[in-house]
Simulated assay, not measured.
Amino acid sequence: MTATHDLLQLYPHWTEIEELDDIPSWVHLSLEQTPWVVVRRAPALEGQIAVGVRGQERHLRQALNIPQSLVAQKVTPEQCIASPSLPSVQKRYYNDRWSTMPALQALEQLCSQWADNQMNWGPTGSVGFELATGHRTVTMTSDLDIMLRCAQFLEPAVAEQLWQQTLELPVRVDVQIETPYGAVALQEWAKPATDRVLMRTLQGPLLVSDPWNPRIV
């Protein structure tokens, strides 16, 4: 079972994906170099997974649907920071990266700040991709994208405390709360401008009053 933001390593026969015949050449080159994809929020047929391919440039992203049988390994955002991955093992291999990349430094600080919050969370975006694959995707200007998995209702006051802690970090931090029905920005849930918040779902964006009980209002 996969979820949005999971990182998937593909078996070598990924070259048999039919959709590869009609997509840009950079996708082939990217997968040849790093055969990993990220699960995206989109509907897929039975036996298929909706994924995205990262290119060398930030604007290069390609949506694909792949057979589940192509998945050799799965790494979740939570596993990217699971002990002993951070900082002992990961830092040992990427010491130069942890000392020079602001986004990685921000992640280490956030791990310390959120050590006792008893919630499931982890990095996505370029930081998550680098930690899962070892491919250097983080740059000096990278933001820190975080997935916070909340199966149960999160009080807005608690969300505000968590969001305030991210403001102390050296880079911009974008935290998405993942509910069983979709995702909402931590900042928006912490300080809603109205009685509705924007939630990303498999059916597209929706305005809801409660992301854990998404009755459209």
Rank of each mutant, 00 (worst) to 15 (best):
2 T>M: 04
154 L>H: 05
23 I>A: 03
87 P>D: 12
92 R>F: 14
1 M>C: 01
16 E>F: 01
92 R>L: 14
143 D>L: 03
92 R>P: 01
151 A>P: 00
199 M>P: 01
11 Y>K: 15
13 H>P: 02
68 Q>M: 09
212 W>Y: 09
130 E>L: 07
27 V>N: 02
209 S>Y: 02
25 S>E: 13
186 L>G: 11
138 V>L: 07
138 V>Y: 02
162 L>T: 00
170 P>S: 11
188 E>T: 12
98 W>C: 03
107 L>I: 02
56 Q>D: 12
136 R>H: 09
33 Q>C: 10
139 T>R: 15
213 N>R: 13
92 R>C: 10
24 P>A: 05
98 W>M: 07
102 P>H: 07
11 Y>E: 13
215 R>I: 10
216 I>P: 00
89 V>M: 10
159 A>I: 07
190 A>G: 10
209 S>E: 14
69 S>V: 11
54 R>S: 03
49 I>F: 04
45 L>Y: 00
212 W>P: 03
205 P>D: 02
84 P>M: 05
95 N>R: 15
45 L>C: 03
116 D>A: 12
68 Q>D: 11
21 D>T: 12
179 T>M: 06
167 L>N: 02
99 S>A: 15
147 M>E: 06
83 S>E: 12
130 E>R: 07
207 L>K: 11
207 L>A: 11
50 A>E: 04
68 Q>G: 15
130 E>M: 15
103 A>W: 04
110 L>P: 10
145 D>P: 01
105 Q>K: 14
22 D>H: 14
144 L>S: 00
53 V>Y: 07
142 S>Y: 00
88 S>E: 14
105 Q>L: 07
198 L>K: 12
27 V>G: 05
8 L>E: 06
217 V>A: 11
34 T>W: 04
152 Q>H: 09
30 S>V: 04
93 Y>Q: 13
171 V>R: 03
79 Q>L: 12
139 T>H: 11
162 L>I: 12
85 S>I: 07
159 A>H: 08
163 W>G: 02
73 Q>W: 05
188 E>L: 06
213 N>M: 07
187 Q>F: 02
97 R>G: 00
51 V>E: 03
143 D>W: 01
129 F>T: 02
14 W>E: 05
192 P>V: 05
54 R>T: 05
186 L>F: 08
74 K>Y: 00
120 N>F: 00
203 Q>Y: 03
131 L>F: 00
58 R>K: 14
